[in-house]
């Protein structure tokens, strides 16, 4: 099961800050990030990729987006 970072409803730069903190703590594995705006989705994806993580899947829900990032 991926770790979950719930950044929904939080404005810039919290979603990226929370994602990068979890990336640093885990080093590798799977993280599911919940955000509610397109901007946060783009920012989280860009930040994850800058750390060498892959954006494996992005799904849209009624409240926003689920971004699955992973590093093997």
């Amino acid at each position: 099961m991926p770790e979950i970072v719930d950044a929904s409803g939080l404005s810039c730069p919290q979603p990226v800050l929370m994602t990068l903190n979890r990336i640093k703590a885990l080093n590798k594995g799977e993280i599911e990030v919940l955000v509610d705006t397109e901007t946060s989705k783009e920012n989280v994806s860009r930040a994850a990729q800058s750390q060498g993580w892959e954006v494996a899947e992005v799904t849209e829900s009624a409240t926003g987006y689920r971004i699955l990032i992973k590093k093997g």
Binding site: C12, P13, V16, L17, L20, R46, A47, S50
Partner: peptide
């Protein structure tokens, strides 16, 4: 964003 430009650079090196 003119503020985010510097913030992201300082905080995330992005």
């Amino acid at each position: 964003c003119t503020m985010g430009a510097f913030r992201d650079l300082i905080l995330f090196r992005i």
